[in-house]
Amino acid sequence: MNNIDKNTADLLKQVADFDGISFKGAFNIRSNCMSLGRQSTENIKIDSKTDNPGLDIHIAPGTKGEDVFIPACVTKAGVDDLVYNDFYVGEGADVKIIAGCGIHTETGEPARHNGIHRFFLEKGARVLYVEKHVGTGSNQTKKVIDPQTEVFLGPDSYLEMDTSQLGGVSSSVRKTRGTVGERATLVIKERILTDDDETATTDFEVEMNGEDSGVNLISRSVARGNSYQAYRSNIIGNAKCTGHSECDAILSENGRVDASPELVANDRDAALIHEAAIGKIAGEQILKLRTLGLTEEEAEKAIIDGFLK
């Protein structure tokens, strides 16, 4: 694809490991509200929506080991991108979906990407969903990423969402809603690093409606500079199920974190657990690494890198 400029290529590399030439398998590259390239495969069909901007992605039953790349980039100030992507994953399929969004701006008006994704997993389907968000360029210009995700997990299905936002995004509001069916499992791993005056809000609400369903939500965040993060999760058990959420945050400089985890058990066989810890890096951790020859700054970086890994 020779219609990709350098800023877009750099963002694609960061969010989706783009090699500068193309993606292997099914893909759609979105940049500044337009598609720069698209490819379907025999098992994975990508079509434009007819009622809204965005895509319908159909993954055939039994598809195994294939990847789908759906990255989006904004490289122009003033762009306010809104996209609806629906993923229909057939029975017994087992695939990896790589999404993510990068914004690069140097001057001008705020730039924003709002991706609304819905996942419909049929019986026994398995999906690993990887989503990275980055912002690059001048930190004087506002870069906003507001993802919304809805998941509907059929019986025996499994969805693992691995999401990360490791700097450069001025503001983000992540909203995730889920419905988990019989023996289905939803795993969400979230990593967020905010710095300067950035803000990040995450809001999860998952209902476990099926017998023996499960949710595991793990959030790790670092708030540096004058940044602020708000974390809200609500795990609702409406059947015999297991739910676990873990929210750990490290504070540095003047960073602030507000965590509000909720558990709601509407069935006596719902087993729900929440763990949370917010605080600065333990002094003894810094000391240990310093006795290995690291400086205080190197030790703090190693601890934060490991924490967010």
């Binding site: 790790r220 000391l287 240990k288 310093r290 006795t291 190693a302 967010l308």
Partner: peptide
């Protein structure tokens, strides 16, 4: 402590410190 480590002092804590996310390899 950094300078001492670099000067050639090694120290094994009586109660080792635990880390989140750092592996044995790291």
């Amino acid at each position: 402590p950094t300078e001492r480590a670099r000067a050639g002092v090694g120290y094994a804590f009586q109660q080792p410190v635990r880390f989140k996310g750092i592996t044995v390899r790291d």
